[in-house]
Every structure is written in C-alpha cells, then in structure tokens.
Write a protein that binds this DNA or RNA. Structure first.
Length: 110
DNA sequence: TCTTTGACGTACA
DNA sequence: GTGTACGCCAAAG
C-alpha cells in the first residue's frame, strides 16, 4: 500500500466504499495522511478523465455532503443518479442522512 | 522557475 | 448561516 503513489491509494480506498455508503475527501486524506483533502479530489479527477480504473468517485463527497464533483461526470446529474441508483437519497445536490451513510476507511481494515 | 488553479477543510468575523 | 482568508500540495502552462 505504502509503495503505491498517493493517487493509487485513493483509488483503492474509494473502491472499498460499500454500495449505498459514502465517504468524504477529508476522511480519505486523513486516513492516508495526505495532508490535504485536495489531493483526493485531484486523484479522482485524473481517474475520471483518464478512466484509469472503475473508481466509484460518486461515493465521495465533501465535508458538507454536497456533490461538489458532479460537473466532472459528463452531465451535472450523472453523479446524483448513480447515488440514487444505489439507494442514496440526494436532495439539492446534497446527500440526505449523509451522517448516517458516512463510511470511514478505518472500517475497511477490519 | 514562478504563477495559477483546484472534486477541500478549518478558522474567524 | 454566510462570506472571507488561509493552509495544503500536486499538476499544468
């Protein structure tokens, strides 16, 4: 894990997010000790652009639970539809019950 | 090499 | 709750 580049680890962690659950840039950044949540967003941007791996980036939102990166999904509603398709309710570009659906990377180790 | 930008977050008024 | 400021670090021009 540590041998991989920071973005590779971001991809891995993101792929571990269970269906119907969501996480945040800050949580992932803190778990990987990146020092900045922006690194997570950057990595996911590259992943989406280059289509490196099937990374469920729609399960990653900002601290407020907003779908801040929806514009990078081709259409502004793509991210929301993907989330609702997994059972996540999205209202006004924000995740409903975000706090309850929150998934921490620490659970992945268990 | 320097400057700007960005899917963020925290602090403060 | 809203707006401003700053830190954070990597990539692009």
């Amino acid at each position: 894990m540590s041998d991989q580049s920071y973005y590779e680890m971001v991809y891995y962690v993101t792929q571990q997010i269970p269906k119907g659950r969501i996480s945040t840039y800050g949580a992932i950044a803190d778990y990987l000790s990146l020092g900045s949540a922006r690194m997570v967003g950057w990595a996911l941007t590259q992943a989406n652009r280059s289509s490196i791996g099937h990374v469920p980036a729609h399960r990653v939102v900002n601290r407020k639970g907003e779908l801040s990166g929806r514009v990078h999904f081709g259409t502004p509603t793509r991210m929301q539809e993907l989330l609702e398709s997994e059972g996540v309710i999205v209202v006004k570009d924000k995740v409903k019950s975000f706090k309850g659906l929150f998934w921490h990377p620490e659970e992945m180790d268990k």
